[in-house]
Design a protein around this nucleic acid. Structure first.
Length: 663
DNA sequence: AACAAGTTGTTTTTT
DNA sequence: ACAACTTGTT
């Protein structure tokens, strides 16, 4: 549960109220972990192999710092995902009791949000700013693109999502637009000047309307820290020890922010694994972790190489996969869990055979007593699981899907949120546009006219009433006006406001979407989330920065609630582990993806991705691929298993072929 | 100017 | 299979 953008422990009754009398660091940790957890002040880098007890080490580090007298609120824990932060604080809570309740932490983005809401005024930011997600950003880009007539040209102009990617890549990699366009989109080189103009317009648009996208959060935090010494020192004082998890996934801006935060004390512990860097498309650079010792010359380096997760046969294979990588901190993972089955490479005749194999095997495992939630199916892209999802449905196997489209990104949820967002930031033209277009008789032209009129008047509700008097879109606009009158009349909590919006919006959903029952159910889910919040701004920030990571597709279980098979993209599986893991679509051209064939760097990242997937397994690992898959984009038939198994001794895994099997 | 139906192009991964 | 763009109708 999140309150005030700070992670607050859910207090289980089992958790001790006060710190455990003594923590036996030496007994609980292996020598390498012990050394890292108890090291004295100063910069520290921990290279932690997959499953090597990284979280455990961090937790004990936190414990040690608090024990040695550092008040918990002076500790800042930056992690990549909310889940990781929660996991860590929960475990620290078990060890230390409520003392770590006040440890500050979260993702870089949520931390940036907290700081900017407080100090943003120093760099001219209105504190009521709205955070744009990717689709919101693209909506604006589209608007500007059309307004400037870039759409209708003889020569093809990049689409909104391409433009969004270009802008974001430029921001995250700290490189000029020029380099991005020439390097990654050479076919759009001739439009460079227009692209540049468009980015300027986009920036200006956001500025005027108090809008901030994901990249801006980081950039503005960096700007704030760089340009305001007193704030930098204040924060450095407030957070006297900084711990960064998954350091291999940070980009230049984030590394810079860390540097600035620690400028005074250099009490920084970075933990990560270069072999698990899988976010370079977002500007993350695993060289960051390689360069850490250069950034902090006094850094001490620790390596955790003993793996507590997987059996040796699984590690033998994963070690081979990663040892073929080009650049890395050399390490060799070993396990004391000698016994175990070798991983299996399974060839299936086609996609459906692959799905049926997985179902069959999952049923077998359940028979053997492996709980469903201890089994995961991992894949490169979220659509790779579609066929399997249908097959699981047929077998009555319940599952949750992680990664891919989130329900927060669906049209109906975004529609509802737009109504809430304008309450907080009436200048949020994206949300106005979205909600106005829902109204019958209002199209793009009328919507823009209304938005322009609202911007002129400080009392926008009054202006909205005036607009509702006019002929076009009259009656329906009046209804919206009444809605906003109600929403503003009495100060209410988010859930009540949402209920009022549903009164207005529910008829619209039924009208607009054939699958409205499902969508109305989603909205009830959203309502349940708002009930946890007392302040609208916190709800909106959280929902954009840390949306529930579960997708819409969810089969209702016949039995127990929590007994569910996990389907996940490899990216979303990071940091997690299961008894048995299936990696499906391990087909060359799918995993690695065809789009990564262009450059060595991208291929190397795909390799690390497979490595991350395979190292999630504790006891069982099945790598499956269908053959004779025709790929439209390439015009070729794909039949070979992933190239990352090439050259690996065949003795390290079993090979099965399903062609003979009848199911 | 808004809306509905038909056509064409495109396809990862996430904060 | 889906979304963005285009064309035709009210």
């Amino acid at each position: 549960m999140i309150e005030n953008n700070r992670y607050v422990l859910k207090r289980s009754s089992a958790a001790p109220v006060s710190p455990r009398f003594t923590i036996d660091y030496e007994k609980d940790l292996n020598p390498a972990q012990y050394a890292a957890a108890t090291v004295s002040d100063g910069p520290v880098l921990v290279i932690a192999g997959a499953g090597s007890g990284k979280t455990r080490t961090l937790v004990y580090r936190v414990a040690r710092l608090i024990e040695s007298g550092l008040p918990p609120q002076h500790l800042l824990l930056l992690t990549f995902t909310r889940k990781a932060a929660q996991e860590m604080l929960n475990r620290a809570g078990l060890l230390l009791g409520t003392a770590c309740d006040r440890v500050a932490g979260g993702t870089f983005h949520s931390f940036a949000n907290t700081v900017l809401r407080r100090h943003g005024a120093a760099i001219g930011l209105d504190l009521a700013f709205t955070i744009l997600d990717r689709t919101d950003a693209e909506d604006i880009i589209q608007l500007l693109r059309n307004a400037r007539g870039y759409g209708e040209r003889e020569k093809r102009f990049p689409r909104k999502n391409t433009l969004g990617e270009i802008f974001s890549a430029s921001a995250n990699k700290s490189t000029g637009l020029e380099e991005i366009v020439f390097g990654e989109y050479p076919h759009f080189s001739e439009h460079l000047e227009d692209i540049r103009q468009l980015e300027k317009a986009y920036t200006a648009y956001k500025q005027q309307r108090f809008l901030v996208d994901y990249d801006d959060l980081l950039l503005k935090l960096k700007e704030l820290l760089e340009t305001h010494r007193e704030i930098r020192e204040q924060l450095s004082e407030a957070y006297r020890a900084v711990l960064v998890d998954e350091y291999q996934d940070t980009n230049k801006i984030q590394a810079c922010v860390v540097r600035l935060l620690c400028a005074v004390h250099e009490n920084i512990m970075a933990v990560g694994d270069d072999a698990q860097s899988i976010y370079s498309f977002r500007g993350a650079n695993f060289k960051n972790i390689m360069d850490f010792p250069k950034e902090f010359p006094k850094a001490r380096i620790f390596k955790l190489e003993e793996n507590y997760r997987s059996t040796q046969p699984i590690l033998n294979l994963t070690n081979e996969i990663i040892n073929r990588a080009k650049e890395k901190y050399p390490k060799h993972l070993f396990s004391r869990k000698e016994a175990g089955r070798r991983p299996v490479l399974v060839q299936a005749e086609d996609e459906n055979r692959q799905s049926r194999f997985v179902c069959q095997k999952v049923l077998d495992l359940r028979e053997e007593g492996v709980p469903l939630e201890q089994i995961a199916v991992l894949f490169r892209s979220s659509h790779h699981s579609f066929d399997l999802e249908i097959e699981l449905g047929k077998h009555g196997l319940p599952f949750v899907k992680r990664g891919g489209f989130k329900f927060i990104e669906t049209a109906h949820v975004k529609d509802v949120l737009a109504h809430l967002r304008v309450l907080l930031n009436p200048r949020d033209a994206v949300s106005w546009n979205r909600l106005l277009l829902l109204i019958e008789g209002v199209g793009p032209k009328r919507s823009q006219a209304v938005i322009a009129a609202l911007a002129k008047e400080t009392d926008w509700l009054k202006m909205l009433k005036v607009q509702a008097e006019q002929k076009a879109g009259g009656p329906a606009l009046k209804e919206v006006t009444r809605l906003f009158e109600d929403l503003l009349s009495a100060p209410r909590i988010p859930s009540e406001q949402l209920r009022r919006i549903y009164d207005y919006y529910t008829p619209l959903v039924s009208q607009r979407f054939d699958d409205y029952p499902k969508r109305i159910k989603d909205l009830e889910h959203l309502y349940a989330i708002t009930e946890r919040y007392l302040k609208l701004d916190e709800f909106l920030s959280d929902i954009t920065l840390e949306p529930p990571n579960e997708s819409v597709t969810e089969i209702e279980p016949t039995g127990r609630e929590d007994e569910k098979l996990v389907l996940s993209t490899v990216h979303s599986a990071k940091g997690l582990e299961w008894h048995t893991v299936f990696i499906i679509w391990a087909l060359d051209g799918k995993f690695p993806s065809l789009y990564s064939f262009d450059t060595d760097d991208e291929l190397e990242e795909e390799r690390r991705l497979l490595y991350v997937a395979a190292t999630r397994a504790q006891k069982g690992l099945y790598i499956t691929y269908p053959v004779n898959v025709y790929d439209k984009a390439m015009g070729t038939v794909l039949s070979k298993p992933t190239r990352f198994l090439d050259g690996i001794p065949r003795s390290l895994y079993e090979t099965w072929s399903l062609i003979e099997e009848d199911m």
